[in-house]
Design a binder for these strands. Sequence first.
RNA 1: GGGCCUGUAGCUUAGUCAGGUAGAGCGCCGGGCUUUUAACCCGGUGGCCGGGGGUUCGAAUCCCUCCAGGCCCGCCA
Length: 546
Amino acid sequence: MRLTEFRCEALFEWSLSEVELMHWADFTAEKLRKERGEKQVACSGITPSGEFHLGHIREILSAEMIHRSCLDAGLDSRYIFIVDSMDPLRRVYPFLSDEYEQYIGCPLAFIPAPDSDGNPDPNAGSYAEHFLEPFLEALAEIGVFPEVIMNHETYAGGQFTDKVDSAIEQADESREIIESISGRELDDDWFPYKPLGSDGSMDGVTVTGYEKPYVHWKDRHGESGSADTRKAEGKLPWRIDWAARWGIHGVTCEPAGKDHGAAGGSFDTGLPICRLLGSEPPAKMVYEWIQVKGAGPMSSSSGNTVGPIETLSLVPPEILRYLIAGSKMNRHIDFNTGPALFQMADEYERLVADPPNPEAEDLTKRQRVAAITQSGAMRLSQIERGADPVDSLAGVSFRHLAMLAQIKTSDDDVWNSLRSSGHLTGEPKQALQQRLARMRNWIGSIHFPEDARIHIHSQIDENVRGELSQEQSTFLQKLAGELSNTEWSDEAIGSTIRTIAPGCGIGGREAYVALYWVMLGRNYGPKASAILFEIGREAAIELLTS
RNA sequence: GGGCCUGUAGCUUAGUCAGGUAGAGCGCCGGGCUUUUAACCCGGUGGCCGGGGGUUCGAAUCCCUCCAGGCCCGCCA
């Protein structure tokens, strides 16, 4: 704990003189302090339409890491997560039944959630909540606990009223900003507020007048009415809504995807609109796309990308955080749930085992930059802020767990194995249990790399038989005979192997190579005695004598 | 058409903003550990920093230009 505090202090010291040598989140925190002072509000948002992807995770983690960096730098920081629950249902998604046609244009907060068949279920709560819930659970797994703000509640609470009034009073200016910056032409009947019609949809509703706080409308059914701007009876159009909420919540930082960041995109129009409505906007900050690819055919039409929930079911959360923390924001991330996961885990574990020390004196500028960046990435990758990275490994390497999970079918056997090898004392912590669960998911999925898969043969392959020397064959025969009397434990089997080998005229290496050849069809592998143990006495003897 | 980002070793990349001898990890090769956590340790291999031009004593870094890739400009992060 004290060490962590010291490191944060040290980072801050660096920042004063060598701001450029910081991790991007720390750099941003420092920049925010200079521009906006001690109070910071980091923000990210999501539309709970049900279509989530990893880009959302990148956005959220970027904001959350900046928030953590602000806290680490001693700033008074909040991280808010705005749910666009007032956004309308735009189309009938593939996972919805046609019955949702009737809800198009209605705010997601006000329409029913689908049941398992995709039909509206009046007893399942709101659509927005329904999809938000599992997403928030996923966020909790990666250590993200935002202040959740449902945008429809902000409308219902009247917090938007002044902004709405301001936008309507300055409708011409708003229009001018959007048209000149985005380059697109707005319809003549464009109005900076979209009231809900008689059927609860904002589609086909025309504004007929404004008398604060009421927006009068006429809808496609010929009905007319008035929307109270102090309530959730309508909303601002996206480009204005976004700009308005910056002011309402005092947002000082909100990373946006590069679609919003493009010239003329919603960030560019948001900045002047936010000022038009009387508030100071956050500085423009844009992050690149992220893509996580998996193996095999996926439901998604665009290649075979893996969604955030599925990714989290396979990838350890700190590794996912590290993927984001270790990449610069403007860097496109291509990741896969195959071999790259092993590599990323290796890299992470190397850093944990041998933490970079930015304070070392004999470092070149380059090395110091790397050390600072890496130690920042490690710090921000922890699920719990301030936690010791060593704890995240729970004492077991990713590769070791991959092996154990394959040869031990029961979790208890894995724990026993870890106890006997000294990796574990007592009962496994929840973190370790989850690691194993994810590992099993991964191994059981098509994403697990084929060459990391252990295929235990049930009999000697003919090609393999040809490779074996006379001595090796003799060894295998003798071993088979001996195994029928050997105590069936990992250790005893190992000892038997080592005892028999010399008597067959071969060294230990050749003996093991022979064993691996017949068991796995390869000349190397995980601990041989452990595999034999797992195969079981009878099957093992059958294999060796086949 | 307008704009943004990227191009450095076989792969992933650091360094680019404030120019000062190209760094790292993985892979690969060799050796060690009298042999197993696909581990670990030591050594080695490997880059005209996308091409060309310019500024400079000096350029991966700044300027111009070209090439290649990705993306945005319809509320898809």
